[in-house]
Write a protein that binds this DNA or RNA. Structure first.
Length: 778
DNA sequence: CTGGTCATTTTTTTT
DNA sequence: AAATGACCAG
């Protein structure tokens, strides 16, 4: 299929360097692309896929796997833009995250995998609940075995493809054997509930591919060309999945950078990329070392730092962009001072260099650092966004609503059931639940079935029986609604306007569960915010459209999407959101995020905060050399996000978890030669922790109660971008088609915020801010 | 059964 | 500092 002579100079090769061209032109056989920071990796990958298609390979034979939805979405968009229009119509190209690919595969091959296709996906919080339950069942005190420790032990085992039995076989000492018991009990909880945790998605898929020859063969034939992004972050399960898919055709292209491997703690195995050439001795290896992103001093400082990693193959980094400015290091007095310095610097950049807010970012090691920074940006009236897409789904009211939905989709999901059975309070208290549980146990019944038979349970008060009956009828009426209401006509799916059957269901749940009433009757601002969040959830549901890939899986022979399929896909997409997914380039605000989420992104101006010993490197990652090297890579990733200017800060005194402590400089700062950076010590004469406190004057205009109140999603969107006239609630806007209207509500969502606008002539509509070309009218 | 207060704990990073 | 869990009064 591939031409052995030089690839033709079509436009997919335009403007590329020689190694880039080589990678783009590669068609058959294994390929390893070592892509340093800013080396045009995404360009190479997307053009290569376009090139494959131009060589006559059907798009549906190509499978690209990424780690975040955002990366997948971007890749899909960029590939499609490279393809001729007539091809887009008949695509079928699969670009997905590892986890969503596996989830879909497992639903399709549920029977072969020994699963119920309605299985739930448990997130970290659900997993915690399930582990607590398991610890109780295994009669282990959660004193000595904290759910967190057990969870990470189990996760590590699963990433190595060990199940509970395999783990137990390895367990020697008392502690490990106890964990093994907890593991076994936890697996039982998952099985009974028809639930999988994140690790299971990979583990079960890997096992299925390994053990089931016919499934493996089918998938190998379907996915002839495999592409894996960020390969340095794959764990063993992912490695097995990739190897199984590629075993026959060997058309596997992996892209990554060992120096940016930062997920070792969750089982990523850097050996996967380091030993790729041993696994595929005939692999072509292409190194992309030239940096097109950052100016010279930034590249050189980062390079000096990463050289301190010993277990590493050094590759030269060079830049195309001239020296630029030296990175700045500022030693601040304390965290508030640090935040102010960063805000000051960003303001100056905007005034002097006209750098837009959206091209600036603050990166930090731990989420807890965001609070002080947020305060500083808010007080300075600088628009900012905290990239934390998962935060929305961690809110109590949202988790509750989703638990109702999960229970509708999967009747056996007892973790979901227990969460909402008495939320909002409906008279089913602990005593009643214990009685029901005992009954279920004695009669070998499902918990929900026992509730159904509540009137036969002795020891339950008449009051409780009535309450339980009402609850059961409520759930069953929703379930009936979801199963009977099919999408009568496919056009509805493509319609952006409600009513969507899904939104209807979510709305019914919010209303009929009593959640709406509970929060509406409350006077507290917090509950009002909760109500707004629930409305946002409904609005998000109304706009939910399964991805092309998902639809392709189910549509097939003209099969219609039933409401339950839609619900399933929705719950799946919600379970698998990542923080990085919420990074919105159209937002017009400074982005605040962790170093981990920043991987793969770039900004003109970047501040890395908290360069202190114990914070970066983190205290818990200093026990081994391997961990310390990973922390160094993390710092390297942060530094190389900057295109033009890099600011690194630390506070001499920092308050963390309520304790104020003097800090020690990060060794990483020490490792960068002093003449590679410009250092400014603002805390030189700070002899005493008390001085730090005195020097912190309360900021100018502290609003009443600010800082206490939980910030709502809506509030975040009210911080406007001065680059453009802001769109706020109540303001007048003009839409190119609908004309003049007034903004009634703004809904900020992880991806694509929207606004409800009452138009003078066109009626009330909900529009996506990103696409609707709204102009504010003064 | 509900809703308060008080004590205790918190792994940093995430699909 | 914040969030959970245990305990107790209504």
């Amino acid at each position: 299929m591939s031409d052995s002579s030089a690839p033709p100079e079509t436009d997919v090769f335009a403007g590329l360097t020689a190694p880039q061209k080589e990678a783009v032109g590669h068609v058959d056989g294994p390929l390893l692309v070592l892509a340093g920071p800013g080396s045009g990796k995404t360009t190479v990958v997307t053009r290569r896929v376009a090139h494959l298609i131009s060589q006559g390979i059907p798009p549906w034979q190509i499978l690209a796997l990424t780690f975040t939805n955002k990366a997948a979405g971007e890749m899909r968009d960029r590939i499609e833009r490279l393809l001729p229009d007539e091809l887009i119509a008949r695509r079928g190209l699969t670009v997905a995250t590892f986890h969503s690919f596996c989830a879909r595969l497992l639903r399709r091959y549920a029977q072969a995998a020994g699963l119920d296709s309605r299985f739930s996906i448990y997130d970290a919080a659900d997993q915690r609940d399930a582990i607590k339950q398991a610890l109780k069942a295994a009669d282990l005190s959660s004193r000595n075995f904290t759910p967190g420790a057990v969870a990470s032990a189990i996760s590590n085992a699963k990433n190595r493809l060990l199940d509970a039995a395999g783990y137990a076989a390895e367990a020697g000492d008392f502690y490990t054997r106890s964990i093994a018991r907890a593991f076994t009990a936890y697996e039982k909880v998952l099985r009974v509930n028809d639930a999988l945790d994140f690790d299971d998605l990979l583990l079960v898929t890997a096992r299925l591919l390994r053990d089931d020859e016919s499934v493996r063969g089918e998938l190998q034939r379907r996915h002839q060309y495999l592409l894996i992004d960020e390969y340095q972050d794959t764990n063993h399960a992912q490695f097995v999945i990739a190897a199984a898919l590629a075993a026959q055709h060997r058309n596997i292209c992996v892209v990554g950078d060992p120096d940016q491997s930062i997920y070792g703690w969750r089982g990523a195995d850097i050996r996967n990329i380091l030993e790729f050439e041993e696994q595929y001795p005939d692999a072509s290896v292409i190194a992309l070392g030239r940096n097109f992103r950052s100016t010279g001093h930034i590249v050189s400082a980062a390079d000096q730092l990463i050289r301190h990693n010993t277990r590493r193959k050094h590759k030269p980094l060079s830049t195309e962009l001239g020296d630029g400015e030296k990175p700045t290091v500022i030693v601040c007095r304390h965290e508030h001072h640090e935040a102010e310095m960063i805000v000051d610097e960003f303001r100056r950049r905007r005034e002097e260099n006209a750098t837009p807010w959206k091209d600036m970012a603050v990166l930090y090691r731990i989420n807890a650092l965001s609070r002080v920074l947020e305060e500083a940006f808010r007080d300075a009236q600088v628009p900012y966004i905290v990239a934390r897409g998962t935060a929305f789904y961690e809110r109590k009211e949202i988790k509750d609503a989703l638990s109702y939905l999960r229970l509708i989709a999967n009747p056996n999901d007892e973790v979901a059931l227990r969460r909402i059975v008495n939320t909002p309070p409906r008279g089913i208290g602990k005593t009643s639940l214990d009685t029901i549980e005992l009954f279920a146990l004695n009669h070998q019944m499902r918990f929900f079935d026992a509730m159904r038979a509540a009137d036969r349970i002795t020891g339950l008060t008449a009051r409780a029986i009535a309450a339980v009956g009402r609850f059961v009828r409520l759930i069953e009426s929703w379930r009936e609604f979801a199963t009977s209401a099919g999408e009568s006509d496919d056009a509805r799916l493509l319609d952006t306007e409600p009513p969507s059957i899904l939104a209807e269901l979510v709305e019914r749940v919010v209303r009929e569960s009593g959640m709406e009433k509970l929060y509406r009757n409350s006077k507290s601002e917090e509950d009002l915010a909760r109500l707004e969040n629930l409305e946002e959830l409904i609005s998000a549901a109304s706009e939910f459209v399964p991805t092309v890939d998902e639809r392709a899986e189910t549509d097939g022979e003209g099969r219609h999407w039933a409401a339950t399929d839609l619900l399933q896909a929705y719950l799946e997409s919600v379970a698998l959101v990542a923080d990085a997914d919420s990074v919105d380039p159209a937002s017009g605000a400074v982005t605040l995020m962790t170093l981990h989420t920043a991987k793969g992104l770039e900004f003109e101006v970047v501040a890395v905060a908290g360069l202190e010993n114990g914070l970066l490197p983190h205290l818990r990652a200093t026990t081994s050399d391997a961990e310390l090297e990973e922390e160094r890579r993390l710092c390297f990733v942060g530094m190389t996000r900057a295109k033009r200017h890099l600011l690194m800060t630390r506070a001499a005194v920092r308050t963390h978890r309520g304790i104020r402590e003097r800090t020690i400089e990060s060794p990483f700062l020490h490792e960068i030669p002093t003449d590679s950076v410009i250092t400014s010590d603002q805390a030189m004469y700070l002899d005493d922790i008390e001085d730090a406190e005195e020097s912190w004057r309360p900021r100018p205009c502290p609003r009443k109660g600010a800082g206490r109140r939980p910030r709502t999603a809506v509030e975040a969107s009210l911080i406007a971008d001065p680059d453009q006239p802001e769109i706020t609630i109540g303001c007048l806007v003009r839409h190119p088609k609908f004309g003049l209207g007034r903004v009634e509500a703004i809904m900020r969502r992880p991806v694509g915020s929207s606004a409800r606008i009452a138009f003078q002539s066109a009626g009330t509509k909900t529009l996506m801010l990103e696409y609707a070309r709204l102009k504010r009218v003064e």
